[in-house]
Nucleic acid binder design. Structure first.
Lengths: 333, 333
DNA sequence: CGCCATGGTTGCAACGTTGCATGCCACGTT
DNA sequence: AACGTGGCATGCAACGTTGCAACCATGGCG
């Protein structure tokens, strides 16, 4: 296999300990010795053994990212940024998919298989705040999204209420009055959808528009298919609408396709706004108006937070980090 | 921290070795002893230490996936399937992004930081076959895509020549005669683009259509922006076209947006076909005709191949695995 | 001249696990 | 009664690394 410290030591005629000193760069080593050891290292192509370091030092240099599904564009983009940010901190990122399954999420809270990782970035979906709170405190943990765990766990997220309000207000500013909201998830304890409805309702109230429950459409998941189906229902049996605010870009893209196929013109007959600003939306026809969360900031803050937990005080009070968002207006509204 | 075998052993009043036997399930352990040990394990919430197992056994249970970028839909979908497939084999997947950078890819060939992983699934982009071939044989490796490393390394891929021929033939069957190909990459040694051009030319030749170099458009990357720009160039300065075959769905989506904005009707004025069958294409307007590679098969075969290398003969002859593909016709053609 | 500080190097131990060899006991056989 | 056998349990060692403390020169100082 690969060379070990011992073999390098034998080759250089020094002790194992001295080679270790050279490798780790620190400590007092005579320049001449260092050179000799370095030569042996190069010849044998020595590479430190991660397993031994992990065992000895208790750090693996690995961080897990647990998300519902990596194939979804929003999580894909986020994962990409997290990988980059992790690399910047000489960590490596391990991806777990929960599929939005509660048991799966619960399992991860207890620690990723055998304490392999130094920390966990979790985007909970099905788990209730209550369950999140009473987790066995194994690995340092950061949550993505507003999970309302009573400030007991570190969070990183945009302000969903404000963002949803911004999006809805924009549609109102465009003169729309019958604005539907697609993306409620009453079957989940997940607080994100609830916050977005809240922001939506706030904007309506501020503008003096009535809140019509028939305009609030629930979905199972946040995929394109769900958005498509929601619009189908809305057009078939719902009240007339002149705008839709979708809680994700995926929902919005599915919604747009169905609306276009039904012969509606976007934005003339129906204005559409999404949430996430994934690349698909920018290249859709028409290009999608959306809420743009600062994803770089999410990635950066999440890992900063994790780093602080890992090397700092694990019992420090939980932080709730709110990252900026913006409204990006495009052709769909 | 977490309990170790020793602590469980003390609690259960047996030796460390016996606890190990219980944990690993094997060996001869008296039912009564097993029960007592199991009780101690549960009480202390013992979980085997991955670092120690890795050090002792030489297996980490980790596999790395190295791709240009996870945020790209094709790689996102593939990564999702690989994560699932890995889980099925009780492996965990670690994601590395090369950004299509040659140095980065080269670095990974030498082994992922300190032999952390048992295997590597690499989707090379910038690296030449020659370089791939003379890699230091560190970790077991499987390549995604047709990299033409002279049969010296394991590969998993669709037959790009045949697939490109199928797509082009379909456009010809639709009565198109001026068919452009977007996605050539003469600046890269990467063989995939070259194979797709070949398939495209074969189909033209079979149909007796002339091969016009002005209809073969090169791009830097395979993003939507590149497709959009390619179509812009084509419409501005190129010869007239009535169909486009793009080497990726992303290129096709970018191409469609630009064409639609230029007032062209799809498919009436311009038929478009892509490659990859990512979800975006299915929900685009019009829905995108494309080549559908069996991604599940790619994920499955890649990990099977890796598993064989890891636990089997590392010097066995390299395998070239070709997975099935299909032509999926939708509204864009 | 002896002592101490300093620079440079080293050995030991331990992190948690498992392969190997061995030990112990009870039972059945000769 | 002595012996072998098989079921069960254990001790030792090693995987590669690093913290700790000790070690040995050397040279400066009292």
């Amino acid at each position: 296999m690969s060379a070990s410290l011992r073999q390098v030591a034998e080759r250089a005629g020094v002790s194992v300990r001295t080679v270790s000193n050279v490798v780790s760069g620190f400590a007092l080593v005579a320049p001449e010795t260092r050179a000799r050891v370095q030569a042996a290292i190069d010849e044998l192509q020595y590479r430190p053994n991660a397993a031994a370091r992990h065992l000895r030092g208790g750090r693996s240099g690995l961080v897990a990212l647990a998300i519902p599904e990596i194939a979804s564009p929003y999580f894909g983009e986020l994962a990409g940024l997290l990988v980059e940010e992790a690399e910047r901190r000489s960590w490596m990122l391990l991806v777990q998919q929960t599929g939005g399954d509660a048991d799966h999420e619960r399992g991860l809270l207890g620690g990723v298989r055998g304490q392999v990782v130094d920390g966990l970035v979790l985007s909970p979906w099905a788990l209730s705040p209550a369950e999140l709170r009473r987790r066995p405190d194994a690995v340092p943990l950061v949550l993505l999204g507003e999970q309302d765990a009573d400030g007991l766990l570190d969070h990183v997220a945009v302000d969903s209420v404000a963002a949803a309000r911004d999006a809805t207000r924009h549609l109102i500013d465009r003169g729309r009055t019958r604005i539907a909201a697609i993306g409620l998830q009453p079957h989940l304890e997940n607080g994100t959808a609830a916050r977005r409805v809240e922001g939506y309702r706030q904007a309506l109230a501020e503008a003096g528009l009535p809140a019509d429950p028939a305009l609030e459409i629930a979905v199972q998941r946040l995929h394109r298919a769900d958005g498509a189906e929601a619009v189908r229902r809305l057009l078939d049996t719902g009240p007339p609408v002149d705008a839709i605010f979708c809680f994700s870009d995926q929902l919005a893209l599915g919604a747009m396709q169905t609306a276009l196929r039904a012969g509606l013109r976007i934005p003339e007959d129906l204005a559409v706004a999404g949430f996430d600003d994934v690349e698909d939306g920018r290249y859709a026809t028409p290009a999608l108006t959306t809420i743009t969360p600062d994803k770089e900031a999410i990635a950066r803050e999440a890992l900063t937070c994790l780093a602080d937990r890992i090397s700092g005080d694990r019992t420090a009070p939980a932080r709730r980090i709110v990252v900026p968002h913006a409204l990006t207006v495009r052709d769909s509204s």
